[in-house]
Nucleic acid binder design. Structure first.
Length: 873
RNA sequence: GGGCGCGUAGCUCAGUGGUAGAGCACACCCUUCACACGGGUGGGGUCGUAGGUUCAAACCCUACCGCGCCCACCA
């Protein structure tokens, strides 16, 4: 048994134990015969570094994984990284820019090679950081979404979806990001409220009979106007329907059409229609008979003005940015007095969530996935309970999103990612196939050109629960570990990732990806603000680990994780749990000094002494609480149960009680109970527990693979009530001492009056412990004959502590009166309730019985306290 | 415009139809031979507001006030 150093230094042990676990293959021992248990880690971006949100996510997963492993299961925690298309391409492009270089100086293949180079050099930062947290995942089979095998799965899925008619190419408006020059999905667009203007413009009728006023928030797009719409029932405009308008800047003749989209209440009631640059207008345009291919486009990929196909945009506007074009157009309109009104207004404006620039609706050919079809079984899976969402309030959000889902744009105009397996012949014919050879075969040997685009990163990560297990091959892992048991993710990726995993998993595996979906909240700063780099209020988990240890950080995050609500992280909490670790450490030191080491039995040792029988029962009850908390995924309750047991029960009472009496039985029980603590605490605090496990003695195996306790031992009710009584007695005496300002060093005599035989026996059995903890000189089973004693009431007995001359009668009278008054107040309120026939007749019988019993107890207590007050004189 | 969540001790949060809990902070005492990252004791809450249901509500219902988030095409 190694002597423990005086203080606990997390730094010194964390690295050593992690390396030991990993090199020893202890994260996934060979357990092919055992029941499998599976969880996949949301693959962090390969460009990422560990932030506090990861720390929470990883902690929650590791806690479950470690326990399942201790339960003896073949626990698999899949780990890997995501190629993160846009993010990674950006990083590499930025590196090039720093050297006055740029992506377009290279061929596609050359650039992609550079990305792989970057990944090899600096792509693994986050995986090192996961280790610092103690993540016990299966590194031996670490995956990457661009690995050959995984890529094969991605291609296969796309080809299959195409075959099944669930992936198709379409020309329609997409959310175009002019900064990254790629399409993005609806989910990657965030709407921000921006202060803008609402213009009312005057468009002259072509026949010279007047003008019609139209409203817009984006005057620059008028250059591609193709119609003016009015409501079919709007009396003001009915007669104009079918007439033409001469566009004030381009001179284009455009029709006035009837469409319900035009809201008579809004602005003038007439609206300009720009089908190529507005989602609503696109629909109106289609209804008005325009084909997407005919719709006018006035922007290039960077959102600068280009000539429309009818060449009607004035020369001086070409090449202008959106912003400049707006100014120029407004000036031109002002010059011809065509602006009726300008109002200030808050405009909901779409922004790219990564680029931060305004998204342009742009008419392009893209690949879409028929999400609505895939969504149906995913909705059903939750409805039927095949997937259980925790907390279940999120189910509503799940349904709401999936029921209203739009086609998913999956093509991206990037170089880094899974290239879309589609090939085009010169006649435009498209062949979708797993390989170029297959495509060529299908195309009859015609020359083919592969699609330039790559797939949305989320398209591939949606396959994570099965493609990491070897799919489409039918591997042993796949058979054993799909469906996964649980998925843990932040609710911020519920749509991006979770829902898409469910859709793809059900479509391709015929089975839900996981049985339970646990959603946790976001970590916020102590003020409740969302953490962001720009605000500078981020908490660096690695800094906290350096300062307080990984165990303390993990325990904090678990303790604060309650049913998915957001976590306001306060460093003080981490400090507090670091103190908890130190407390445990010192308890171990103390036990060690007294000859307590590793327990030699898994089952609770036989014990005679009440204190030992009691602590065994307390372990059993703590285990039950923990097991229940695990079953319900209540991390706060797990932390709470073990924290209070270790500190409030084991350290504060058991260790204090057994001080000085380390007989063989006590040593055996203390060893066993402490071992149970280490086992039960290990999922939350793996490092310190593993270290203490080793420090306490020779072990046949590491704690990480030790067995989670089974509730074999019993709670002894007798011992429980005896120790419960003892704790109350000691607490009462201590309280009286403090309130009466008795110096801690003074030892008192205790007289017990009215003690039952049982109480007398308890006093006798435990007199040494009671005397030490309550600082007593002697205990006598008789009423104190004199006056001037402090008195405390515990159950039926009244105890007197003579304080000859020391006692302050006033203080003691106050103290006793306060206690009596409190008891009487409760007694009276219970009496009142019991005198109400409505209560005794209608309330549950248990409630009535309990009220009666409580009433009796409170009456007796009040009586004893009043009697004590009398005696005081 | 829909949907969700939250408002409980100074702070951060649990909580259950039957007389309010924890941690931290605070006050007082203690250099007791594991631990001052400690020990002991204590103060502190009309459980957002107003109604309703009930024998009984902080817990259920309704409305309102305040805060936050998500979804949605009001040009």
């Amino acid at each position: 048994m190694a002597d423990l150093p005086k203080t606990f230094e997390p730094r010194a042990i964390e690295e050593r134990w992690y390396a030991h676990w990993e090199s020893g293959g202890l994260f996934r021992p060979e357990r092919g015969e055992q029941e499998p248990w599976t969880i996949v880690m949301p693959p962090p971006n390969v460009t990422g570094s560990l932030h506090i949100g990861h720390a929470l996510d990883i902690t929650l997963q590791d806690v479950l994984t470690r326990r399942e492993r201790m339960l003896g299961k073949d626990a698999l925690w899949v780990v890997g990284t995501d190629h993160a298309g846009i993010a990674t391409q950006m990083v590499v492009e930025r590196n090039l820019e720093e050297r006055q270089d740029k992506r377009t100086n290279y061929s596609r293949d050359q650039f992609v090679a550079k990305v792989w180079e970057w990944k090899a050099e600096s792509g693994g930062a986050i995986t090192r950081q996961l280790r610092r947290l103690g993540a016990s995942c299966d590194w031996a089979h670490e995956r990457f979404t661009m690995d050959e095998g995984f890529s094969k799965a991605v291609t296969h899925v796309f080809v299959e979806l195409h075959k099944r008619g669930l992936a198709y190419r379409d020309k329609r408006l997409v959310n175009w990001d002019p900064k990254f020059q790629t399409a993005i999905s609806d989910l990657e667009v965030e709407t921000r409220e921006v202060q803008g203007k609402f213009w009312t413009l005057s468009y002259p009728l072509a026949d010279g009979s007047g003008a019609i006023q139209v409203a817009t928030t984006r005057p620059e797009t008028m250059l591609a106007d193709m119609a003016v719409a009015v409501h079919p029932e709007d009396e003001r405009y009915k007669s104009l329907i079918g007439k033409q308008v001469k566009h004030p800047i381009t001179g284009r003749l455009i029709p006035i059409v009837a469409d319900e989209h035009a809201d008579p209440q809004l602005g003038s009631g007439a609206v300009k229609i720009t089908p190529g640059h507005d989602f609503d207008d696109f629909e109106v345009g289609k209804r008005a008979g325009f084909k997407p291919a005919e719709m006018l486009n006035m922007f290039d990929a960077t959102a600068h003005v280009v000539q429309t196909s009818d060449s009607l945009i004035p020369e001086q506007l070409l090449g202008l940015s959106r912003e400049d074009a707006r100014k120029a157009v407004v000036e031109l309109l002002e010059a011809q007095d065509a602006i009726e009104r300008v109002e200030d207004r808050v405009i909901p404006t779409p922004y790219g969530d990564r680029s931060g620039v305004v998204i342009e609706p742009w008419l392009t050919d893209q690949w879409y996935v028929d999400a609505a079809k895939l969504a149906k079984p995913a909705i059903e899976a939750v409805k039927s309970g095949k997937i259980k969402i925790v907390p279940e309030t999120w189910a509503k959000t799940w349904f709401n999103w999936l029921e209203n889902i739009q086609p998913w744009c999956v093509s991206r105009q990037l170089w880094w990612g899974h290239r879309i397996p589609a090939w085009y012949a010169e006649d435009g014919h498209v062949f979708v196939a797993e390989t170029e050879e297959d495509a060529r075969a299908e195309g009859g040997g015609k020359p083919l050109r592969q699609d330039e685009d790559v797939l949305d990163t989320w398209f591939s990560s949606a396959l994570w629960p099965f493609a990491t297990l070897g799919w489409p091959d039918e591997t042993e892992d796949l058979k054993r570990h799909y469906p996964n048991d649980v998925l843990i993710s932040g609710f911020d990726i519920l749509f991006f990732w979770d829902a898409r995993m469910a859709m793809q998993g059900i479509e391709f595996m015929g089975e839900v990806p996981w049985r339970t979906l646990y959603l946790h909240g976001l970590v916020r700063d102590a003020q409740g603000q969302k953490m962001s780099k720009s605000k500078g209020n981020t908490v660096d988990p690695l800094g906290l680990i350096d300062k307080y240890g990984a165990d303390a950080l993990r325990f904090t995050l678990a303790a604060m994780e309650s049913q998915g609500r957001d976590i306001k992280l306060d460093e003080k909490r981490v400090e507090g749990y670091r103190n908890f670790a130190t407390k445990l450490w010192n308890a171990a030191r103390f036990l060690q000094m007294n000859g307590v080491g590793a327990s030699d039995s898994i089952a609770a040792p036989a014990a005679e002494l009440p204190v030992n029988r009691w602590i065994i029962g307390e372990v059993v009850e703590t285990l039950a609480k923990l097991d229940a908390a695990f079953d319900e995924l209540r991390y706060d309750e797990m932390a709470d149960a073990i924290y209070h047991f270790v500190w409030g029960t084991f350290c504060d009472w058991y260790v204090e009680l057994i001080k000085g009496t380390f007989d063989e039985e006590t040593k055996a029980v203390a060893s066993w109970a402490f071992d149970q603590i280490l086992v039960m605490l290990h999922p939350l605090m793996p490092f310190i527990t593993e270290d203490l496990w080793a420090a306490m003695g020779e072990r046949p195996y590491e704690l990480i693979v030790a067995r989670w306790p089974e509730p074999e031992a019993q709670v002894d009710p007798q011992a429980k009530s005896e120790l419960d009584w003892l704790v109350r007695l000691v607490s009462e005496v201590r309280s009286a001492r403090t309130e009466l300002n008795v110096p801690p060093s003074a030892k008192l005599n205790l007289f017990a009056a009215d003690a039952s035989e049982e109480t007398a026996a308890c006093l006798d059995r435990n007199h040494a412990m009671i005397s030490r903890l309550a600082r007593l000189d002697s205990i006598q089973l008789s009423a104190f004959p004199g006056t001037g004693a402090a008195q405390v009431v515990v159950d039926e007995a009244t105890f007197a502590l003579p304080l000859e001359g020391v006692i302050d009668f006033e203080s003691e009278r106050d103290r006793l009166s306060k206690g009596a008054a409190a008891a009487e107040k409760e007694r009276d309120s219970l009496a009142q309730r019991l005198s109400n026939p409505n209560f005794t007749e209608r309330a549950k019988p248990e409630a009535v019985d309990k009220a009666r019993a409580d009433h009796e107890a409170k009456s007796a207590e009040a009586g004893r306290l009043r009697a004590a007050l009398e005696r005081l004189g």
